[in-house]
Simulated scan of single mutants.
Amino acid sequence: MFNRRHVLGGGAALALSGGTALAQGQTLRVGSTPTGIPFTFLDTSRNTITGFMVELITEIGRRQGFAVDVQATPFAALIASLTSSRIDLIAAAMLATPARREQIDFSDPVYAYGEGVAVREGEQRPWRSLADMRGVAAGAQIGTVYIEPLRAAGLDVRTYDSVADIMRDVSLGRIAAGFGDAPIVSYQIAQGTFRGVRLLPEYRPSIVGSIAIGTRKGDPVMARINAGLASMKADGAFTALVTKWNLPPSAA
């Protein structure tokens, strides 16, 4: 459990005012989703949360002198868990949108992408953009940035707790299209996790943004996070991590 009392190290107080009191060797609670493969997901063989963002924040912590305790947190509960101090950081596939920036702070951009559209195998309608999909029954995950733009574009939006639930209904023909983070959907289809669906290669996303690490407003730990992220990008460790998790080039 993270201790917010001032901690003495090397004979000097290392507490930081106005946010997380972080001293060398302390542990921060990190909220990550169990269903966001390859960014964050539950490794059932070890019963632990892993993935690109988990390895990223772990390495940042190693470089900046803090440990992490990764806690499985539903996507829709991440911000509330952070602002209520149940967790100290968010490391997940969360886009740093203006609305979310009103509630929490975000690190420098980590990785950029847009929405992907999954359809049932055999679906032949030539959807290339949201403008082509007015009236289409489509699924999106609760808490994501996709719901309102899809509704504004005239789609018949059904909301779901997880991407897996969306893909199930696409494969069964209950909805015509499923929206999700393109790298996540693509990775899981390639791994055989989602069966009976395919990602539309000709579709061009319109809701593009960057994911980033989240902290409470004004938390000075952000300086360490940005420093660690910058050092990983400078020495090639970040690129190696992107390659390890088979992510396509960032859209940024």
Rank of each mutant, 00 (worst) to 15 (best):
R63E: 00
G11R: 06
N246T: 13
E121A: 11
A223E: 04
Q71E: 14
G116C: 12
A251S: 15
D88F: 05
R62T: 12
D69V: 12
S171C: 03
A177L: 06
G173C: 02
L199S: 13
S171A: 10
A93V: 10
L56F: 06
P98Q: 02
T58S: 07
R120V: 00
V185H: 08
A227I: 04
P98H: 03
S85V: 11
D219N: 07
L95D: 12
L14A: 14
F75M: 07
P220W: 07
R125T: 07
V221M: 05
Q71D: 11
E55C: 02
R62Y: 12
D88M: 05
G11C: 02
A237S: 10
Y146N: 09
M222C: 06
M53V: 05
A96S: 07
A99Y: 13
F66G: 08
R63N: 06
R120L: 03
I37L: 14
V136T: 13
R204E: 12
L16E: 09
I213T: 02
G10C: 13
S45I: 01
V54Y: 04
A23D: 03
I60N: 07
T58D: 04
A138K: 12
G19A: 00
E123S: 14
Q24D: 13
Y160R: 15
L199Y: 15
T97M: 06
I184T: 15
R62W: 11
D169A: 00
Q124C: 14
L155F: 01
R86S: 09
K244Q: 03
A227V: 04
L16W: 07
M133P: 04
P109I: 00
G236F: 03
S45W: 01
A80I: 06
N3F: 06
G180M: 00
T73E: 08
L155Y: 00
K233M: 00
L150K: 09
G114T: 05
A77F: 08
I79K: 10
A23F: 02
D108G: 05
F194Y: 15
G218F: 01
Q191R: 14
G36V: 02
E202C: 02
T35A: 05
T144F: 04
T243A: 15
Q188N: 14
N226E: 01
A92K: 13
V163M: 11
P149C: 00
R62D: 09
T73Y: 07
I175C: 00
A153L: 01
G218R: 08
R86M: 06
A137I: 09
S85P: 13
S107D: 00
I90P: 08
A212H: 04
T159R: 14
D43R: 12
G196Q: 03
V197Q: 10
L172G: 10
S231D: 10
P183S: 05
